[in-house]
Amino acid sequence: MAGLNEDAQWIVLMGFIVSFSLFFLAIVLNQSMVVGQTTAESVLDFPKNDIQNLRAEIINSVYYEQVDDSIINNDIVSIALARKGAIVSYSNYTGNYTYINIHYNNGVTVYNETWASP
């Protein structure tokens, strides 16, 4: 910069400062986008509707319809594994109240519930 006059040196110096600040802002924004994306993906990975539908079908078939448990159990297990890649199992006990233990695992989310009849 020895060959430049003083005004040109300031222009070149300000150009460096502006370019480095834009580069720094681009890195910061890129990192915030990555954090936002992974947070949104983790929310999308939780299969809330799948669990609600599964729970409703199991409770409906065991408690309200009282159909053959082995047929419904085999159907629910095979459909959940084929369509969603989830391992589903449930067991029930009927005494004074009906208790249903529901287990759901799709490799990311594990859900366990014990439902008791009202």
Rank of each mutant, 00 (worst) to 15 (best):
Thr39Met: 10
Asn74Leu: 07
Val62Leu: 02
Glu65Met: 07
Val43His: 08
Ser42Cys: 02
Asn74Asp: 14
Glu57Trp: 10
Ile71Phe: 13
Val28Tyr: 13
Asn73His: 15
Ala80Glu: 06
Val35Tyr: 12
Phe23Trp: 07
Val43Leu: 09
Ile76Cys: 03
Arg55Lys: 10
Leu81Tyr: 05
Leu81Gln: 06
Tyr63Ser: 06
Thr38Pro: 03
Asn60Arg: 13
Ala56His: 15
Ile76Ser: 03
Ala40Asn: 01
Asn53Gly: 07
Met14Arg: 05
Phe23Met: 12
Phe16Tyr: 04
Ile71Pro: 01
Ser61Gln: 06
Phe24Asn: 04
Asn30Pro: 01
Val43Gln: 08
Gly36Phe: 02
Ser19Pro: 03
Asn60Leu: 14
Val77Glu: 03
Gln66Val: 10
Gln66Trp: 08
Ile71Gln: 08
Val34Gln: 01
Ile27Pro: 03
Val35Thr: 14
Leu54Trp: 04
Ala40Lys: 01
Thr38Tyr: 05
Ile71His: 10
Val28Ser: 14
Ser70Asn: 14
Glu57Lys: 10
Ile79Asn: 06
Gln37Phe: 11
Pro47Met: 00
Met33Thr: 04
Glu65Arg: 06
Leu44Met: 06
Ala56Phe: 15
Asn60Met: 13
Gly15Asn: 05
Ser32Ile: 13
Leu25Thr: 10
Ala40Thr: 05
Asn60Phe: 15
Gln31Tyr: 15
Asn53Arg: 09
Ala40Glu: 04
Val18Asp: 12
Ser70Arg: 12
Asp75Ser: 05
Tyr64Ala: 03
Arg55Phe: 04
Ile71Ala: 09
Ala40Asp: 04
Ala56Arg: 15
Ser78Trp: 02
Asn74His: 11
Ala40Leu: 06
Leu13Glu: 04
Glu41Ile: 07
Val34Asn: 00
Asn73Val: 08
Val28Lys: 14
Val67Ser: 05
Val28Asn: 12
Val43Trp: 13
Ile58Trp: 00
Gln37Pro: 00
Gly15Arg: 05
Gly15Cys: 14
Leu22Val: 10
Phe24Leu: 04
Asp50Thr: 07
Gln31Ile: 14
Val35Trp: 10
Phe20Lys: 00
Asp50Val: 01
Asn74Ala: 14
Ile58Glu: 00
Ser21Tyr: 11
Gly36Leu: 07
Glu41Gln: 09
Ser19Tyr: 12
Val12Asn: 09
Ser61Glu: 13
Asn30Leu: 06
Ala56Asp: 15
Leu54Arg: 00
Ile79Val: 07
Gln52Cys: 05
Leu13Ala: 15
Phe24Ile: 07
Ile71Val: 12
Asp45Gln: 08
Ala26Gly: 09
Asn49Tyr: 00
Asn53Leu: 03
Ile59Pro: 03
Thr39Gln: 06
Ile72His: 13
Glu41Pro: 02
Ser32Asp: 09
Ser19Cys: 03
Val62Ser: 08
Thr38Lys: 06
Lys48Gln: 14
Arg55Thr: 11
Gly15Ser: 15
Asn49Trp: 02
Phe24Ser: 11
Leu13Met: 10
Glu57Thr: 12
Arg55Met: 04
Ile27Glu: 11
Val43Tyr: 01
Ser42Pro: 01
Asp75Lys: 09
Asn60Asp: 15
Asp69Cys: 01
Glu65Thr: 01
Phe24Pro: 00
Ile76Lys: 04
Asp68Pro: 07
Ala26Lys: 04
Asp45Asn: 13
Val77Thr: 01
Ser42Lys: 09
Glu57Ser: 10
Gly36Met: 02
Val34Met: 02
Leu81Thr: 05
Phe23Gly: 10
Asn30Gly: 09
Asn73Phe: 15
Glu57Gly: 10
Asn30Gln: 09
Phe24Ala: 08
